[in-house]
Simulated assay, not measured.
Amino acid sequence: MEKLIGRNQWKWVDWNSEKMDLNQSSSNEGDPVMTSWLNHIGKDKTNSLRVTSLENGEKVINGSLIYKQSYSDENDYKIFHFFLTSGQLITSDLEILSMNQDALYRLLSRTNNAVEGFLLFLGELMNEMLVEIDRFEETLKILIWSVRKRNEIGILELVYKRRHELLICKNLLIPINEVKMAIDEINFLDIQDGEFFTCTCKRIERAMVLLNEYEHEIDSLINLEEVISSHRGNEIMKTLTVLTTIFTPIMAFGSLWGMNFKHMPELEWRYGYMFAIVLIIVSTALLYYFIKNKGWTGDLLKGKKKGSFFK
Rank of each mutant, 00 (worst) to 15 (best):
S98N: 12
L287D: 04
S283F: 09
H40M: 05
V179D: 04
P265C: 08
E58N: 11
Y67L: 00
I191N: 15
M274L: 10
G258H: 03
F197S: 11
M237K: 12
I250Y: 14
N112I: 11
F188W: 14
Y288N: 03
I246E: 03
N23D: 01
S98L: 09
Y67S: 10
M99Y: 10
H81Y: 11
T248D: 00
M1A: 10
G63C: 02
L130P: 10
G233A: 07
F261D: 03
D190H: 08
H231G: 05
T91Y: 01
T46A: 05
K311S: 13
Q9T: 00
C169K: 14
E74V: 04
I79V: 01
M1Y: 08
I168Q: 07
K306N: 15
Q88M: 01
N39S: 08
L243R: 06
D102E: 12
I90T: 10
S146R: 15
N234A: 14
E266D: 05
Y105C: 02
I280E: 04
K292R: 07
F136D: 02
G258S: 01
A207W: 03
I133R: 03
L210Y: 05
K45P: 03
S53D: 07
V147K: 10
L210T: 10
G233L: 05
D184S: 11
D184V: 02
F275R: 13
E128T: 09
F290P: 07
Y77P: 09
F188Y: 12
K305W: 06
L120I: 11
T46D: 00
W269D: 01
I176V: 09
I183Y: 01
M274C: 13
T241F: 12
I204L: 12
T297P: 12
I191H: 10
T35R: 08
R148G: 02
R150D: 15
R206H: 09
L140R: 13
M259C: 03
S70Q: 06
T239Y: 13
W15V: 03
N56S: 01
I250Q: 15
V13L: 02
I96T: 11
S146I: 15
D14G: 01
R150I: 09
I236W: 09
E266R: 10
H231F: 05
L173D: 07
N16Y: 02
A207T: 05
L224Q: 13
D102L: 10
A114I: 08
